[in-house]
């Protein structure tokens, strides 16, 4: 974790109200992995007292650059759109824990709802670099909001669903998932909470549906891996990237917790944002 200056190289509105910004920030790129995030300071402390968290959308260690992809939803995100190339801002990162791919797995299923694409985008790069096959299921309200395929690596199989049927599958992206369950070795998702919840339900019943025989040791029996550990995530079929409002983003304020099935709140900024889907108490828990 470092605090470093980031210089804006390029800022573009790639979709209505959605911005893609590239920053030169070698200190924040070094060691950063897909699933982690930066906590970005606005230049206006008199009004905006909190930093804003954004996922690493892409990471280029050689050039020392990163991109963030965000939607303008309020005053903070609006502030960033007024930056001009050459402007320097202050970022804290890399923060949180990354996605963990089991090294034996070849087929990765990425599922993104809307801006959730920013949470899994870097994983597509990482997986392809490591020679894995990637299918990205993307859901949006309408064709206007669909992430441009030109911004994805050619190797990614890209499948789109829109709520209004204006492009691709007519319906929710979650409805596409059963078609890929047998193919996928592991799945990684980021998006609105209801989407993640239904994905978690699907993942929980996947083994029965597919008739996967549990050979040898049963899951959970034998060697136990500590909850919340990288190994626990690596073993999970579905990993989800969670969102919560944040104060510090370093684990100090306990503002960003999610409830876990163990009954202990975990910090999205420190133990997350990536969790194994089965770690999360999806029905609340307080």
């Amino acid at each position: 974790m470092r605090i470093a200056g980031a210089q804006l190289l390029d800022s573009r509105e790639i979709l209505p109200g959605q911005w893609l910004q590239a920053y030169h920030a070698p200190d924040l790129v070094a060691g950063a992995r897909a699933g982690q995030f930066v906590h970005v300071r606005t230049g206006d402390y008199s009004g905006l007292v909190l930093r804003r968290p954004f996922s690493y959308n892409t990471i280029d260690p050689l050039a020392g650059t990163l991109t963030i992809h965000f939607r303008t939803v309020g005053r903070g995100t609006a502030w960033f759109t007024h930056l001009r190339p050459g402007d320097r801002i202050d970022m804290l990162g890399p923060l949180g824990r990354p996605f963990e791919v089991d090294p034996r797995n070849r087929h990765l299923l990425l599922i993104a709802g809307g801006l959730g694409i920013a949470g899994v985008r870097a994983l597509a790069d990482e997986a392809i670099r490591d020679g894995r096959q990637v299918t990205l299921l993307f859901g949006a309200a309408t064709a206007r909001d669909v992430y441009p395929s030109s911004l994805l690596p050619d190797e990614v199989e890209y499948v789109v669903a829109t709520d209004d049927g204006s492009l691709g599958h007519h319906g929710f992206v979650t409805e596409l998932v059963p078609g890929y369950e047998a193919w996928a070795d592991q799945a990684f998702a980021c998006g609105p909470a209801p989407m993640l919840r239904s994905l978690a339900n699907l993942a929980a019943s996947r083994r029965q549906r597919l008739g996967v025989a549990t050979l040898g040791r049963k899951r959970g029996a034998g060697k136990t891996v500590p909850a919340g550990s990288p190994q626990a995530r690596r073993k999970a079929f579905l990993q989800v990237s969670m969102e919560q409002n944040m104060g510090c983003a370093v684990g100090a304020c306990l503002g960003c917790v999610v409830m876990t099935t163990a009954g202990t709140p975990q910090r999205v900024c420190r133990e997350g944002p990536v969790f194994a889907a089965e770690e999360i108490a999806w029905e609340g828990g307080w």
């Binding site: 304020c253 306990l254 709140p265």
Partner: peptide, 23 residues
């Protein structure tokens, strides 16, 4: 103490609200 349900923090003009609930 497990503290309060989320959201626990939000920004307000020139400040913030928190309800961590003494976790």
């Amino acid at each position: 103490r497990i503290g309060n349900p989320t959201p626990r923090v939000t920004e307000t003009p020139g400040g913030m609200l928190n309800s961590i609930g003494l976790q």
